[in-house]
Design a protein around this nucleic acid. Structure first.
Lengths: 209, 209
DNA sequence: TCTTCAAGCGGACTGCGGTCCGTTTTATTC
DNA sequence: GAATAAAACGGACCGCAGTCCGCTTGAAGA
């Protein structure tokens, strides 16, 4: 009967200390297992066993296997996020939009070398979660740059462009089709340059860029 | 010791008659079940039971659940394939490449209304199979049209464009983001028109289209 | 410190995808 | 029609994702 909805500030977040500790244990265990056997062999049983927690705890913290993989992918991608949001140009702020877009694509393609496996595993587990915060942030970044180029429907164009940058496709082209990063980057450059040129020319009939 | 590698022609294909009969039984059973409960609730056990065959038979014929879903999707998409390969323009042959590209995108977007569910289910089952014959045919079609527009790397550009036309993305935009088919089609038109204009202008400095 | 109870915990349990292997069917040859 | 070998069959079996529910822990108020 006393203040039903009382606020408990226990850790950094509204998370109990044992819960926070277990979250870290699980993430660390998962990271080790991925490093050992690759993401596709990562079983929730193994993670729970290695972390010394019950299986239910893994699912409580991360919802499902996809959530766990996304959490791992996010940790891996944090430095990339920082690079395009606050790092040096042309990837970070300071360069003109088209150059930043080109740099973003090139960096995404390069990144597959390191994070591709985990990103693909996260994507393929139950269909890519297009509304995951990381995905949203990526698209927000793209749409701002596209708006800077005066592309007609930048939000939707951001979906289009990020569809091409997904890990499943890029890794496939690199591994199974043997395409070089240079070739992938060139095609990306053609695509975004075409969008930019088209938008520029339709805005003022003789737009130079 | 007698002719080890002897050729047996038993049915239309190199398939035994019981095998062919069971393939049809399984496909019919799966089609009915999909119509009843939707593709995501389609279990291989249920298909086998309904078809009156063993579970092993389902897997022998179709490899896995993804294979079965792809087979269903292919049946559903056969008329679409025919439309863009041999139907009336602008989707079929006879119209200029840019118009056919635009029509192809519009038709793909419209198609989701009918085949979207199955296509998405097939995609999401174990990651989209980019080298599935149907996918290859789609990209071949796109790359031919793109080559007609003198786009630099048409094979790769076909991958880019078909990435945007995948069912998971289109259905998400339609259902979860409430985007109209008109809006999706408009953005598609912008994209391919930009590619065409860019390729045309770089080929001859004052290309009119 | 003691009480209270929401939050967290964990492992047995369920359902489904996929495999395995002994049995049956089919087409061919003699 | 009998023999034969390959192909197909089917259901018991296995591994893993995800759920459920009774038990434990830890934070807040008294």
């Amino acid at each position: 009967m006393q203040g039903e909805e009382l606020l408990r500030v226990t850790g950094d977040d509204g998370e109990r200390t044992d819960a926070a500790r277990n979250r870290r244990l699980i993430l660390d265990a998962a990271t080790e297992l991925v490093a050992t056997c690759g993401p596709e062999r990562l079983t929730t049983d193994a993670v729970a066993r290695r972390a010394g927690v019950g299986k239910g705890t893994v699912f409580r913290r991360f919802g499902n296997r996809a959530g766990l993989l996304h959490a791992l992918a996010d940790e891996a991608g944090r430095s990339f996020q920082h690079a395009f949001m606050a790092g040096p140009p042309p990837l970070g702020p300071g360069a003109p939009p088209l150059e930043r877009l080109i740099a973003f694509g090139e960096a995404s393609i390069e990144r597959m070398r390191f994070d591709g496996q985990i990103l693909r595993a996260a994507e393929q587990q139950g269909g890519p979660d297009l509304e995951h915060p990381t995905q949203q942030l990526t698209r927000l970044h793209l749409s701002i740059l596209l708006r800077g180029l005066h592309v007609p429907d930048p939000d939707l164009a951001a979906y289009q462009l990020s569809a091409f940058l997904n890990a499943g496709l890029l890794l496939h082209l690199q591994e199974h089709r043997g395409m070089s990063n240079a070739r992938l980057a060139a095609s990306w450059r053609v695509l975004v340059s075409a969008l930019a040129a088209d938008a520029g020319s339709s805005r003022s009939s003789a737009g130079p860029l």
